[in-house]
Design a binder for these strands. Structure first.
Lengths: 130, 130
DNA sequence: ATTACATATGCATAAATGCGCAAGTGTGAT
DNA sequence: ATCACACTTGCGCATTTATGCATATGTAAT
């Protein structure tokens, strides 16, 4: 009975994962675990696990590049999946404004479009708190 | 953080409730707990509780009429809610075909558009098994 | 009032889930 | 080979969630 779709609903029915998915939808770019950690502000294992759950549920794609793992929004082809993703896309932005801002900041630290700085770096902390 | 929407996702992330919600979306009519029981084939407490959860999550409306309680699909006004409901509406029908068929049968037992026969009645069992 | 019936709801148990910790894998650089 | 670092994963614990039973609520009819 559409097990994969149920997994997606389950995955999204958790605030941290909903925020992560919202992020991936709105950034419209690949994002590493390290970047997601800094943006969301949660521990490494949680971000890693939650991203992986979204991946296993079919909502995200995974791509390894050296020691970095990039996650991107998965392309959907079926109507009910497209609508589900659209639903999240349309969530009121004000709920996530700070997330979007922090993500812009974090992606600004990239070099040639690639992530080169790990999580919780001094550079990042200065950038955010300063 | 869109608590109500999270509740809706949580409510839908359970096979029985997803089926119930799908039913209410596709029947496009009010349905009693008794009718839902017969159609879905689950115990009274589960159907009652699960319908109530969908109601509390804002996906269904409730309407009492004598000793019967009718549930209907709630009208949504916000984009992300509309898309979420649409997503469920677009789920492949074949997964729920038997549900749809049983529901048509069950609604055929109504008198003047109202439910008059309780759950697990002999009439219903004959109708389904015969 | 009493009965019958549709629906709702505590309570207890069992299963699933989230989280922190610690240890693991894999990759790139020295 | 060794080290540093990004990421993953198994384990134990606390919390949540689902389920079954029994009981409660509310309504209609006698």
């Amino acid at each position: 009975m559409e097990l994969q779709y149920l997994d997606a609903l389950k995955a999204l029915a958790e605030p941290h994962r909903l925020r992560l998915c919202w992020l991936l939808i709105h950034v419209d770019q690949k994002v590493t675990v390290a970047e997601a950690m800094d943006v969301i502000g949660e521990t490494q294992y949680n971000v890693s696990r939650n991203l992986k759950m979204l991946f296993k549920a079919g909502l995200l794609d995974q791509e390894k590049n050296g020691k970095w793992v990039y996650y991107t929004l998965a392309e959907q082809t079926e109507k009910h999946w497209l609508l589900l993703v659209d639903s999240i896309r349309q969530l009121p932005k004000n709920q996530f404004e700070s997330v979007a801002g922090r993500c812009k900041l974090r992606l600004g630290m990239r070099v040639n479009g690639e992530c080169v700085i790990g999580p919780n770096s001094d550079d990042w902390i200065k950038l955010v708190e300063g």
